[in-house]
Write a protein that binds this DNA or RNA. Sequence first.
RNA 1: GCCCUGAUGGCGGAAUUGGUAGACGCGCUGGACUCAAAAUCCAGUGGCCUUUAAAGCCGUGCGGGUUCGAUUCCCGCUUGGGGCACCA
Length: 912
Amino acid sequence: MDYDFKSIESKWQARWAAEKTFRVSEDPAKPKYYVLDMFPYPSGAGLHVGHPLGYIASDIFSRYKRLKGFNVLHPMGYDAFGLPAEQYAIQTGQHPEVTTERNIARYREQLDRIGFSYDWDREIRTCDPGYYKWTQWAFLQMFDSWYDPDLDKARPISELVSRFETTGYEDVSAERWKAASEKEKSDILMRYRIAYQGETSVNWCEGLGTVLANDEVKDGLSVRGGFPVEQKKMTQWQLRVSAYAGRLLDSLEKLDWTDSLKEMQRNWIGRSEGTEMVFNTVCDGRELPITIFTTRADTIYGVTFMVLAPESELVESLTAADRKAEVEQYIQAVKKKTERERIAETRTVTGVFAGSYGINPVTGEKIPIWISEYVLAGYGTGAIMAVPAHDSRDYAFAKKFGLPIVPLIEGCDVSQESFDAKDGIMCNSGFLNGMTVKQAIEAAKDYVEAHGLGRRKTNYRLRDAIFSRQRYWGEPFPVCYKPDGTPTPLPLSALPLRLPEIDSFKPSPDGQPPLSRAKDWTWDGYPLEKSTMPGFAGSSAYYLRYMDPHNDEALVSREADEYWRNVDLYIGGTEHATGHLIYSRFWNKFLYDRGWVCEDEPFRKLINQGMIQGRSNFVYRLVGTNTFVSLGLKDKYETTEIHVDINLVHNDRLDLEGFRRWRPDFADAEFILEDGEYICGWAVEKMSKSMYNVVNPDDICDRYGADTLRLYEMFLGPLEQSKPWDTKGIDGVARFLKKLWRLYTDREGFIVTDDKPTPAELKVLHRLIGKEQEDIESFSYNTTISAFMIAVGELTALNCHKREILEPLCVLLSPFAPHIAEELWEMLGHAESVSFARFPEYVAAWTVEDNVTYPVQFNGKMRFTVDLPKSASPAEVEAAVRGMEQTGRWVGAGQIVKVVVVPGRIINIVVK
RNA sequence: GCCCUGAUGGCGGAAUUGGUAGACGCGCUGGACUCAAAAUCCAGUGGCCUUUAAAGCCGUGCGGGUUCGAUUCCCGCUUGGGGCACCA
């Protein structure tokens, strides 16, 4: 009876689907466990062997937790809105819905072959109106909320309105509020809403015809498509993520995430604690106080000039009449640069004198005000005090424009470079003289506050998220515009606001978003918003929707939310560290503030699976010929390296005939062989079609089966590490499954007996149980599989075919190789799926040996061994060692100083 | 420049977190079965010295240190990968 993985796997996949084996519902009698994969964007290329890595890991964990008695929520869905489908639509006219649908079908087919235990009844798609209804709903809630800094949480905007009405708030008095028109009131509230519309400097991508968020831009190019991005002022919908910066940073502490990922988020949020200080300024005789931000208030005595960002609103009022032309010219030049050029020229110093002066609030000194692009409008106040002696950017600027440099720290040399370090003793600094820098920073802050010159301030680098995209394939905004231009939310009853049909997916000829092509895109006679929401809108709260995916009354019912709460284990790639994982946390905190969810963090534990890279193969063609030389001989010739399809290579040996057939121009290829074979070179590269190194999981399932694929992906190495795929080693795990099969069957059939197991056999089993429990919780799946191989090897050697051993073994294996486990479980006489079994109890006694053979070392050198009870105390050990003296096995000389016993391992005797 | 993170045989990787380094798998070598091949099974496999064996020496990127004992801890480098980058 052979191990026929093909029929076994299709049989069980069909049965799981038909019987809905993995369907879950809230069950108060059981503890819950929520295991989530980052849902995929269904691209046209389908899955390669690297994609399922995280899914397999989470599936193993889900199945394991189920065996342990947890009620496991393990869903899957699709992040289906997005640029590639729309770009494809622009080129072909094919509706994105059609391509998306097709890609999803293909993904599903591939996923199903691997045997995941998803509850497919909970599948979601972000492009489904029943789903994006709740994305739109969340947007409306954010529109209807503001961030109350006193309570440090989001509150209904109506509370702010009543404050305006009664006492006034910030710069809006009750009188002004009452006198304001509807339009004015709308504008004032817009400054406070969590989802708001406002003019801001955006990343505009001409190639995609849309704005992008900061995390969608890398090195001045769009992440999708690689088009150049420029800075542009535009009015856009935004989310007030910055209001949550402090909380997003602080609650990182309690999350079970890797340090590197937390660190990435910390950098992205970028807290810096400093001081806001007011400087008076003079421009053409007019006085104007301006505020700057600094983390080095202690260097106030070294301020020799001030700098404004070119985009700062202060530029206009602080430019002297006689400098207008020059300043204007500079600002135009800065504006013209693309983001990429700005990055490329990072170290070139540019700037222009504004013709105005600032007054140092401590020394009263008059200092010039400059304008330079090294100061950013979006951070702090867009204006700085420059201390060239102790800031390298100010230093470079001062050197270039011949501005004075005043050192403030004893003994520092600023003739070649600035002294940025925060250590040393202050000098030239009035009341700060003699202090260390760290003392001086605090003293200066106190001084500034005591003298009313400013206040302590914490700034964050995290910006508000730009939430509009000038694209078609995304969620429409449930917002229309009144004749005075006031954005007005649609009533909840209007949701979902469905995407309209349009005839072309391109922007309109006058540069308007594609939705402007829609006929009658209005609500109640008012025009609707024409931009759509970005990709992260749909993916920010999807984990909540899985808890209650068919609910038409709420994003998630209170009961479902309070049962499932949040994700216990989240597995996905690091690429979402500063995008999705920030937005999701923000979104969740907002919903928490407003009382719709009961946990303030969405993902308790997060694991980043490593990337699986491709292993490419090369052949070496002699330059100008069609002759190929084997790897070992190539250095004797002048060759070019050519990627060769890895399907034509086995163990780095080239299939010569296959190669000749591969491409017409290689049909008459000649070879220079070594030892009769052509050896190919190899390299680890990204898995991609152009490098002919893509391995498709379907092919592996055909050749070896899904269980082998699952085991092999996990056996490859630690989950979190990136590693190259190399199909070469897969035979090892395939052999393991065949051996396992042989424990249960022989040529004729089922051979499991009811004989009583021996202690040796029980020991093998229980050691495995112990090992598996230990390793699974720490995600060391590769060592668990090693333990399986050892156990199966030992049971084979013991010729053990006993139910009492093999039944638990089958359960232990089922998370890893579920299909074969189900088949064996059925042969063992069980009617129900093995996933309803319970993880076998671990009997500690079977791993404890009464006597242990200890190697005895003297000063680290091994001398002899001694048999002792495992629990022996150091005194007993010492006595035993001394006993060796009597039996003549004593090899050491001198006095025993110390006896070190490592339980079950070793005895070390320190001799003097 | 700053911050993470890794470096162990021919290869992927283990090592109970300070205790016999190289588990397990791949590959390779030899053997058994076979007319033969595949499959399967058995044995060997870090390096050096040695006819062989025993024994020994060297070995976890490099250089120091702590310790009876270091892949593991500390200090200083080299190097691969990732992230941030005029953030005042």
